[in-house]
Amino acid sequence: MLSYIIKRVGQSVLVLLITGLVAFSMFTFVGDPIDNMLGQERTQADIDRLREQLGLDQPFVVQYYRFLEQAVQGNFGISYRQGRPVGEILLERAPATLELALVSGIFAILAGIALGVFTAIRRDGIAANVIMSVSLIGVSLPTFLIGILLIYLFSVELGWLPSFGRGDVVDVGGWSTGFLTASGLKALILPSITLGLYQMTLIMRLVRSEMLEVLRQDYIRFALARGLSNRVINFRHALKNTMVPVITVIGLQLGSIIAFAIITETVFQWPGVGLLFINAIQFVDIPVMAAYLMLISVMFVAINLIVDILYAFIDPRLRVAA
């Protein structure tokens, strides 16, 4: 068992290292940060000096090695654009993304399950059919378009909700939260819907088809024959059995909510790590790009590692194979 875990951890570290190498080899194609850092009246000497200072005159493998050397000591370098430590910037931005992901995740799960159950039970009703058709639009429209439509409707036309940003935030022990102010909560509504809409439709359609499947089972008919109320049949017997595959999918979608956040954050000028990353690409802010990509790959690799190890606990055959 121990050797299995060690092997898996080793593989994960290897994957991380390769991801980093690929990322660093790509940075050359993103462009040259020097022109963004120097003004119109710079000379070639200024360009060469700064390039040397930043180590950009070195091949990417050397740059990568230097990054790793610093990163294992917890130092992610200084942002070219902001002149501040990247670690500090990421910590400052993380709460915005995590809060947004949390709220849209909850929205997707609650609304998805509720609508899924509703459309399964009333599958011939008009309302259910309307919901199913509208959900198709929700899946097919790109996120940025949905975001802009929502802004147009609720901010520009109706003026109910803010068009961008997080509203007022309160600092609780270094964590800036938007949950404690009215404007912070209002600001969460549109981005959360935009970000969670796709996952919501996914969950809704999954719940619906699973539920329809379950409702055809013999034990449901038997329950009906026993004279149980519809409510008990639908929610105690059918829904519970529907949830097994749904929970698996929800778990898998967690990571993609954070990944999809990049687009939503750009549309709503949501000050999270996704927006930071997009701006870093435009400026060729290599330290920020590197740290973000490494952070995301660490996250995904860690999730996979945990899943692998859990499988090993559940399924003894894997242990033997290792």
């Binding site: 802009i148 802004i151 147009y152 901010s155 520009v156 003026g159 803010p162 068009s163 961008f164 940003g165 750009t266 549309v267 709503f268 000028q269 927006l275 997009i278 701006n279 435009q282």
Partner: peptide
């Protein structure tokens, strides 16, 4: 002063008075 990179978002913010 708030940076807004997306032109459509900035436009919406101006029209809505944000």
């Amino acid at each position: 002063m708030t940076p807004i990179q997306n032109p459509a978002t900035a436009l919406a913010a101006l029209i809505s008075g944000d």
